[in-house]
């Protein structure tokens, strides 16, 4: 057979129909959508599903703690799952309940200057405390923080009412999860815990970042 230089005709997707070569055939193939660039529709579908899944995961996870220079969780090997509870976020700037800054946390550098910039907050040996103006009787030694007490009492009432409205099984448990920055001093923790106790919360949980190394 004479060699014409023409390659064997490749077949189409199904393997049955050879891809046409004549001008007329190519035009008809274009209309049928057989010719052209890579079909990215399937890839688009995958990407869209992935994007939706990620958006749902991120927005629906209540324990997705956003870590930044004001909030870094401590590490521990503890293996107890968090449960539905009132969350108290204690960052280097404020005590946050129900996404509302309830009580500010004051920060001073080792030199006694008030922290202003992110760089100040990133320094070691900073001192964090709740100003006495926010404490009971404006006393330095007091552990009760009235504004936090009011907010927690309200939150506890909402939680109790929700529990009753939905007729959930079992007795209502007043639990709080304290999500605390790793550099927050014991004094602030004691103040938060004492105030939570006064609000009627009797079960305390501290959120930590799980690590296999203790």
């Amino acid at each position: 057979m004479a060699h014409t230089g023409r390659q064997p005709r490749p077949t189409g997707e199904g393997g049955d129909e050879p891809i046409p070569y004549t001008k007329k055939e190519r035009a008809s193939a274009r209309e049928m959508g057989m010719e052209g660039a890579l079909n990215i529709n399937s890839l688009m579908d995958i990407m869209t599903i992935l994007l939706t899944f990620l958006l749902v995961s991120i927005t629906s996870d209540p324990w997705n703690v956003k870590q930044n220079q004001y909030m870094q969780l401590a590490e521990s090997t503890v293996d107890r799952d968090p449960q539905d509870s009132i969350a108290i976020l204690v960052t280097k700037r404020a005590i946050v309940v129900d996404e509302e800054d309830t009580v500010p946390v004051t920060c001073t550098t080792a030199g006694g200057r008030q922290c202003r910039t992110d760089e100040d907050y990133g320094k070691d040996n900073n001192r964090y405390f709740i100003d006495k103006a926010w404490k009971e009787d404006s006393s330095e030694s007091a552990f009760l923080v009235p504004k936090l007490l009011k907010k927690l009492t309200e939150e506890l009432k909402v939680s109790r009412d929700t529990h009753a409205d939905f007729n959930r099984e079992g007795e209502f448990k007043a639990i709080t999860t304290i999500i605390c920055d790793k550099d927050i001093p014991y004094r602030i923790i004691a103040e938060v815990v004492h105030t939570a106790g006064n609000a009627g919360i009797d079960q305390l949980r501290f959120a930590i970042m799980r690590n296999s190394i203790r």
């Binding site: 293996d79 305390l204 930590i208 970042m209």
Partner: peptide, 19 residues
């Protein structure tokens, strides 16, 4: 970008009794 926003760490809790 979303993957970077998502935290790949486990949050667990330590139970503590009131002071």
């Amino acid at each position: 970008m979303l993957l970077a926003m998502f935290n790949f760490f486990e949050v667990k809790v330590q139970a503590v009794a009131a002071p």
